[in-house]
Amino acid sequence: MDFELEMAFFVGGSNKLGEPISIDEAQNHIFGFVIMNDWSARDIQKWEYIPLGPFTAKNLGTSISPWVVTTFALEPFLVDNYPQDPEPFPYLKHSDRFNYDIKLQVDITQGSNVSTTVCRSNYKYLYWTPKQQLAHHTITGCNVNPGDLMGSGTISGDSSDSFGSMLELCWKGTKPVSLLDGSQRKFLQDGDTVTMKAFCEGDGYVLGFGTCTGTLLPANPMK
């Protein structure tokens, strides 16, 4: 079992079936953001990845934070979009900034109640913007509705302590991650609590998303 550090946005407004949302209008359909943990079963994922791609390994559970932070509230924290090379197709190109300086953190707590921060990352490392994601999702006419949730994918930076999953942090199980209680992890264990935090720092204030927390319980074998 593994976590994946992600952010996600809620769709606001809708489009008719068969009518794509253009890149120039995409921001009008993005209501706000939450932290998202895309729980992942890596052993199942390895088995089904070829030829199907991840399916049951990824749909077993999703946790989100309690607060939806609107795009309006995030405007003071806009930063330049991540450089893209090669250039995206014309329907995905936009010059306006739609990337954010959101600090991210993942803690793991085991029975001793000692928490270890295993990841510090930032939303600004995402290669694709939410506008591009929504425009691409609807380019063939897929309709979206208010309340639809779209995850960002794993948010990993360029340093080893900024990787957004145990799969990356332990380098596919070859480099165990040490916790402050003296134990080590290659992947999550029963009883582990994963807490994700996200916040923006302004001049004299902090804008937070709350925490995205979940505890891994022992499997309930089928009778």
Rank of each mutant, 00 (worst) to 15 (best):
F77N: 01
Q184I: 04
F199E: 15
D24G: 14
E87G: 06
T195C: 03
S162G: 12
A135W: 03
G173L: 04
R185A: 03
L126T: 15
L207N: 13
D158L: 12
A135Q: 08
S152V: 07
T195Q: 02
T154M: 04
W39V: 14
R42T: 03
A73R: 08
L217R: 01
M222Y: 15
L60Y: 15
I155Q: 05
W128F: 14
L207K: 07
K124S: 14
A26Q: 12
N37C: 03
D85F: 15
Q27C: 08
K172Q: 13
T109R: 04
D101Y: 02
F89V: 15
K186Q: 12
D80S: 12
L5R: 06
H136C: 02
I30R: 05
L149K: 00
T116P: 01
V144P: 04
F10D: 11
M196P: 07
G12M: 08
K186H: 04
G173H: 10
T195S: 09
N122G: 01
D190N: 09
L78K: 14
I102W: 02
W128I: 14
E87K: 13
R120F: 10
S112M: 01
Q189L: 10
P54R: 00
V177P: 00
D24I: 08
L104S: 06
P76I: 06
D24Y: 11
Q189C: 12
M36Y: 10
G151R: 01
Q133V: 15
Q110Y: 01
P51F: 01
W67S: 02
S162M: 04
D101G: 06
N113W: 06
F10S: 14
D148M: 07
T117P: 08
S65K: 07
Q184C: 02
I139C: 12
V106W: 04
P51G: 03
F89E: 15
S40F: 01
G202Q: 10
I155T: 05
G191P: 12
L179E: 02
G202L: 07
T71F: 10
F163T: 11
A57T: 11
N15I: 14
G214N: 13
C212G: 11
P20F: 05
G12D: 05
R97M: 12
P86Y: 06
W128L: 06
R97H: 09
D190A: 07
A73L: 10
F3M: 00
P66W: 02
A26E: 13
G13H: 12
I108D: 07
Y49G: 04
N145G: 06
I102M: 09
K197F: 07
F98R: 09
P83M: 00
G32V: 08
T56K: 08
G182Y: 11
D101P: 02
P66R: 05
G147C: 03
G202S: 14
C119H: 09
T211I: 14
V118H: 13
D38A: 07
V79G: 05
P76L: 01
N28V: 06
G214P: 04
P176W: 01
G208C: 06
D203H: 10
C170A: 14
F89S: 15
Q110T: 03
W171R: 15
